[in-house]
């Protein structure tokens, strides 16, 4: 029995390691302290965004702390100011790895607002 348990344990640990090794290398942009716990965000960011979008659009309650624009402000790459432009961009990198279709950015801009404004004002 002891042997079985230790065998299982070793298996789990090595699997977890393998998982670590294969996990995507993301460009996290400025990064730093997230507005919520990182692990919690990995699991729940979609719920925040989904409820937030209804409140913001339909009720006009704009929650700056949890808005998509705030995510992008921190996580857009410092190289190209985007969360979607490259394969390792913050949103794209992880969604590709998890094979979850990402359609926010068909309508929403994936560019940091300050950079977008600068570009527009240069035109």
């Amino acid at each position: 029995m002891k042997l079985l348990v230790s065998l299982l344990l070793t298996l789990c640990v090595s699997l977890a390691w393998a998982g670590e090794a294969a996990s995507p290398k993301l460009d996290i942009g400025k990064g730093g302290q997230c507005v919520e716990d990182t692990q919690w965000m990995r699991k729940n960011h979609m719920h925040l965004l989904k409820h937030g979008r209804d409140d913001a659009l339909r009720l006009g309650i704009r929650d700056e702390k949890h808005s998509l624009k705030t995510c992008i402000e921190c996580h857009a790459s410092t190289k190209d100011d985007s969360v979607t432009a490259r394969a390792d961009s913050f949103c794209v990198g992880c969604h590709k790895y998890e094979a979850v279709k990402l359609d926010c950015f068909e309508c929403h801009s994936g560019t940091r607002k300050s950079a977008w404004l600068q570009q527009r004002n240069a035109k």
């Binding site: 400025k30 302290q33 700056e64």
Partner: peptide, 12 residues
């Protein structure tokens, strides 16, 4: 290079 976002961000 690290920013701490203050909790005082507005929720309208």
């Amino acid at each position: 290079g690290m920013l701490l976002y203050s909790v005082a961000q507005a929720k309208s």
